[in-house]
């Protein structure tokens, strides 16, 4: 595995096993960005040589504690033909949200956390780390009027186990146009 910073590069040989392996550096390496690259694998290797479980930095005997920044960003949104949106966030989590034009709010694996059927929906990011399908439909009056309606979805994440007191928040807004051709628009 190659460890590369702005002005330092070193290749280390990891055993093809699943145990902690330490590497000392002859000087103190300053880092703001670091890349860990797979540069070779064991011939006939098990899966171990191409996956990374944990990285810990030390300065002398002191461990450098690394946390994620206390914010959550939506990075990408992809709309699919079946009215499903794929989203990814700054931590590599992603979720699948499918939009239904009936007023049902359902999830496949999780069915709580919605504060109301219209207005603001709260979705637990801990759950979205798993595969979640969330169906959100227009409220009753929108179906009657066949007009535009919008719903704000607030993503919040507070994983006290993994990230202690960090709280991540972002939102996206869905505007569903169900007036004529059953198409849906998405805005962020």
């Amino acid at each position: 595995m190659e460890i590369k910073t702005k002005d330092y590069t070193r290749t280390v040989v990891l055993e093809d096993s699943s145990k902690a392996q330490s590497f000392n550096f002859e000087k103190k390496i300053k880092v703001e960005k670091i890349r860990f690259s797979i540069v070779s694998v064991y011939k006939g290797s098990s899966f171990n040589s191409t996956c990374l479980s944990k990285v810990v930095f030390f300065l002398n005997e002191n461990k450098v504690s690394i946390g994620l920044i206390p914010k959550y960003k939506l990075c990408s949104i992809e709309k699919r033909m079946d009215h499903t949106f794929y989203t990814s966030d700054s931590f590599g989590n992603f979720s699948e949200i499918s939009i239904d034009n009936y007023g049902e709010v359902k999830t496949k694996e999780w069915n709580k956390g919605f504060t109301s059927r219209k207005g603001t929906y709260i979705i637990d990011m801990q759950t979205l780390k798993k595969r979640s399908v969330i169906k959100i439909g227009p409220p009753e009056e929108a179906r009657i009027l066949r007009d535009l309606w919008s719903a704000k979805i607030v993503f919040s994440y507070d994983d006290k186990t993994s990230y202690e007191d960090y709280l991540f928040e972002d939102y996206l807004e869905l505007k569903l146009n169900n007036s004529s051709n059953n198409t849906f628009e998405f805005t962020k």
Binding site: N24, K28, L52, F58
Partner: peptide, 19 residues
């Protein structure tokens, strides 16, 4: 790639690879 909000120094890395 890991991007940090501030720079820091290290002289040892411990890596656990695999499952």
């Amino acid at each position: 790639d890991m991007h940090f909000t501030t720079s820091f120094r290290f002289n040892r890395i411990s890596i656990i690879n695999g499952f």
